[in-house]
């Protein structure tokens, strides 16, 4: 038996503190391996995610037509931001649509997911089938989702035929009318979001300690009271995830509107505006970067809450 083996055995049988000190006492080779294990992935993540993110924020204060090299980048301060707010007409519509998206998800779709989860948690007859139906849209891509719903909402689609609009010239255009289409799209987005929220809450409710409910029912608490005072508070970790997912999904919205009409004519959103300024006809990288930065600032709150909740207990 080598000396190291004896030392390790002694340390392992010793106290916790001793163990930890032992396991951090590495050979040179081990150190190199650890550096590689952590370093490789970290460099990849930082170079392809964090550095570009920082670069975008910096670019949002610059002017660059993207044709010339990096030396063509000029610092312009807040000019991009003031121009976006004053000159870029799509921005206001995009901001309004993203806000609507957020409010709709937060005030309607997510609560509906909670209600669904509550009833599915009761193991009613047919609950397996209901769950399957509501889960189903979650696995579908938003691109496919947009195409599927087109058969319902197109001018000669299912809805108009059922409503009796057989003449394509007088039938309402659900996707084409800039006053209606955002609401239709929000409905379609909810089709997916409600199921997703239900899934998260259902998993959370299943993990609520059954004895808590029993105690509440023995105390004669009503259903609503039990839900409000017993079940909902124990869903705290789920609630945090839900806030993050809801805000981020609402702000990232891109696929659905892009597949429906390229995000134009009433369906402008911030993510499409960024895309348009980088890959569209007119390349205004400064504007695109400023729009992306605005998007980031809007996401910042939930990101911070999420980080705080996850890492405060680790400390």
């Amino acid at each position: 038996m080598s000396k190291i083996d004896i030392e390790t055995k002694a340390a392992a049988s010793g106290e916790n503190l001793g163990r930890r000190r032992r396991s951090n006492n590495f050979t040179k080779r081990d150190r190199a391996v650890i550096a590689g294990l952590v370093g490789g992935p970290t460099i990849l993540h930082v170079v392809f995610v964090w550095l570009p993110a920082i670069a975008t924020i910096l670019l949002s204060f610059c002017q660059w037509d993207g044709i010339g090299g990096l030396h063509d980048i000029h610092w312009v301060g807040f000019k991009n931001y003031t121009q976006i707010f004053t000159l870029y007409s799509d921005f206001k519509i995009a901001l309004r649509n993203n806000t609507l998206w957020l409010l709709w998800f937060g005030l309607i779709a997510t609560p509906l997911g909670v209600v669904l989860a509550y009833y599915l948690d009761k193991n009613l007859k047919g609950t397996k089938f209901f769950q399957t139906a509501f889960y189903l849209p979650i696995v579908l891509s938003l691109a496919v989702t947009g195409i599927i719903w087109d058969y319902i909402f197109k001018v000669n689609g299912f809805l108009n035929i059922v409503l009796g609009y057989t003449n394509a010239d007088t039938a309402p255009s659900w996707f084409g009318d800039p006053h209606k289409n955002i609401w239709v799209v929000l409905g379609i987005a909810s089709w997916r979001h409600i199921g997703y929220m239900m899934l998260l809450y259902l998993a959370g409710m299943k993990s609520v300690d059954p004895s808590l409910r029993e105690a509440a029912s023995i105390d004669g608490a009503g259903e609503w009271y039990t839900f409000r005072k017993v079940i909902f508070p124990s869903l705290r970790p789920v609630n945090i995830i839900v806030v993050v997912v809801t805000v981020i999904e609402a702000l990232r919205a891109f696929d659905l509107v892009y597949i429906i009409n390229r995000g134009k004519n009433g369906l402008q959103v911030l993510a499409v505006a960024v895309y348009e300024n980088i890959l569209g006809e007119s390349q205004r990288i400064g504007w695109g970067a400023a729009l992306a930065t605005i998007l980031f600032v809007l996401c910042l709150g939930p990101i911070m809450i999420y980080l705080y909740q996850n890492f405060k207990k680790v400390d």
Binding site: N24, P52, A55, V244, F254, A271, V274, L295, C299, I303
Partner: peptide
């Protein structure tokens, strides 16, 4: 292992995953 950088590292990874793709894609 209990390194000092563990939590900072995890926070970088966790937050990085939550950044909107639009914030990343211009320089990429």
């Amino acid at each position: 292992y209990s390194f000092k950088f563990n939590i900072a590292l995890l926070m970088i990874f966790t937050a990085g995953n939550l950044l909107p793709p639009q914030l990343i894609f211009i320089p990429i």
